[in-house]
Design a protein around this nucleic acid. Structure first.
Lengths: 147, 147
DNA sequence: CCTCCAATGGAAAATTGTTTTCCGAAGCGA
DNA sequence: TCGCTTCGGAAAACAATTTTCCATTGGAGG
C-alpha cells in the first residue's frame, strides 16, 4: 500500500486490483513507464485488462495530482512519473530510458523563476536529453525496445 | 533570411516559399507554435498549403537540430522552439501560452548534471507550469483558444 | 532554350497514442 | 437481499502526426 493507493482510497475511489497494480508499478518503477508499458507489464497478471483501464486510472491519478506526466521521450508516448519532488529527468535519446536525477540547485532556480516571472508555479518538467553512459559506450548497440 | 532558412539551404534543401515562410514564423514567433498554428497562420498566404507540408518541414528542421520540440503544453500538441540557447519555458496552464524565460543559473545546473551523471547532454527542456500573471488576475476569463 | 531527373508540395489514406461510449458485472449501504 | 453507483473491458471514436502517391517544379547539362 503506497502513497498512490492511499491517495485513491482517500479520494473515495474503489481500490480494485487493477488500480492497485497500476499504482504499484508507478510507485516502484524507475522506468517512468508509458500507459502501454504498464499495460504489457500487467497483462500476464490480468489477461483481460484493457488499455482503456490503464489510461483511465492514469488520468485519475494525474488529475488528483498524484503523478506527473513527463512528455514523450522521443518514442512518441507520454511517460509518467510518480516522484513529485522537484527533480531532473534524464532521457537517453538512444534507448529512451528515463531516469531521475537529483540536483539541489533546481530549488534555487525555481525560486528565482517564481519571483522574477510573476507566475504562480504549479509544477516543473526538467528534462535533459542525451546519451546515457551505457549508450555512449555501446556504439549503436543496445537499442532497447520500449517494452 | 534567418538562421533556419540558411540552415536549410546549407543542407542542400531547396528554399521553397513554403519552407521560407515556416522558418520565418518559427524564427519570429514568441508563441512557440504548434504545427497547426503555423498551418493556420500561413493559410491566407498559401491557400493550398497542406498540413503535411508543415509537418514535413518541421521534421526536417528538427532532425537537423535547428529547432527543438517542447512537448505539449496541456493542449495535446507539440510545440516548437527555434531558440536553441539554454533557457526556460514558462507554460501557462490556463491560456496555454508558452514564453521564454532567461535564468543564468541553469547553465550551472547543466554543468553539474553533465559532470555528475555521466550523460552526454544534447539538449534540455526546462518547463515550468503555472498561471501567468495575466491569468492569475483574470479569474476564469481570458481563456485563449489555440490559434 | 530544351530535356531529363531528382526533389517537392499537396491530397488523401494510414498510423498510432489517447479518449469516449456503452453495457454487463461487481461493490456497498440500507 | 435490494437497489443504486462505480467499475472494467471491448470496441468505436478521436486527433495528432506520418506516410504514400503522383503531378509539378527547379535546375544542371546538353
Amino acid at each position: 500500500m503506497n502513497r498512490l493507493t492511499i491517495g485513491l482510497k482517500q479520494a473515495g475511489l474503489r481500490l480494485t486490483p487493477q488500480r492497485v497494480a497500476i499504482c504499484k508499478i508507478l510507485a516502484e518503477s524507475k522506468d517512468h513507464p508509458t500507459a502501454m508499458m504498464i499495460y504489457h507489464q500487467l497483462l500476464p497478471q490480468f489477461p483481460t485488462l484493457s488499455l482503456a483501464t490503464v489510461y483511465k486510472t492514469l488520468h485519475v491519478l494525474k488529475s488528483m495530482g498524484l503523478v506527473q506526466t513527463l512528455g514523450d521521450a522521443g518514442d512518441g508516448a507520454e511517460h509518467f512519473d510518480a516522484d513529485l519532488t522537484p527533480h531532473i529527468n534524464l532521457v537517453c535519446t538512444k534507448c529512451h530510458r528515463v531516469v531521475d536525477f537529483d540536483e539541489s540547485l533546481i530549488y534555487t532556480v525555481q525560486q528565482a523563476v517564481e519571483q522574477r516571472s510573476g507566475y504562480e508555479i504549479q509544477g516543473a518538467r526538467i528534462v535533459y536529453y542525451g546519451l546515457c553512459p551505457e549508450c555512449r559506450v555501446n556504439g549503436s548497440l543496445s537499442q532497447r525496445e520500449s517494452a
